[in-house]
Amino acid sequence: MDRSTQIKAMASDKRVEILRLLSAPETHFSRQWSADPVAVGVCIQLIAEALNIAQPTASRHVELLKHARFITVQKQQKWSYCKRNDAGLQDYFQWLKGEINLP
Rank of each mutant, 00 (worst) to 15 (best):
W33E: 04
Q6F: 01
R15K: 12
D86T: 15
H61T: 04
S12T: 02
S30I: 05
E63I: 01
E49M: 00
R60Y: 06
M10A: 08
E99T: 12
A58H: 11
K66F: 01
R3E: 06
P103N: 02
D36G: 07
D36W: 02
H67R: 13
L51M: 02
L46E: 15
A68T: 06
Q74R: 15
A35I: 04
Q76G: 03
I47T: 09
A48F: 08
L64Y: 11
D91V: 12
L22C: 00
E99I: 01
S23V: 08
L96H: 06
I71N: 05
A9Q: 01
M1R: 14
S4D: 03
K75P: 07
L65R: 04
Q32F: 12
L46D: 15
R15Y: 08
Y92M: 04
R3N: 08
P37W: 12
G88P: 12
E63S: 13
K83L: 14
S12Y: 04
L19W: 11
F93T: 14
K83G: 10
A11Y: 06
A11P: 02
V40A: 02
L102Q: 00
S59P: 02
F70E: 05
Q32V: 13
S59F: 04
Y81Q: 08
R60T: 11
F93I: 10
A54G: 02
C43R: 14
L51Q: 07
K78E: 11
F29Q: 08
I7N: 09
I100C: 00
T57G: 05
Q32G: 13
A54F: 03
V38Y: 10
G41C: 11
D86W: 15
S12I: 02
K14Y: 09
R69C: 05
A11S: 13
N52W: 05
D2G: 00
I47H: 09
L64E: 07
S80A: 13
M10E: 06
M10W: 07
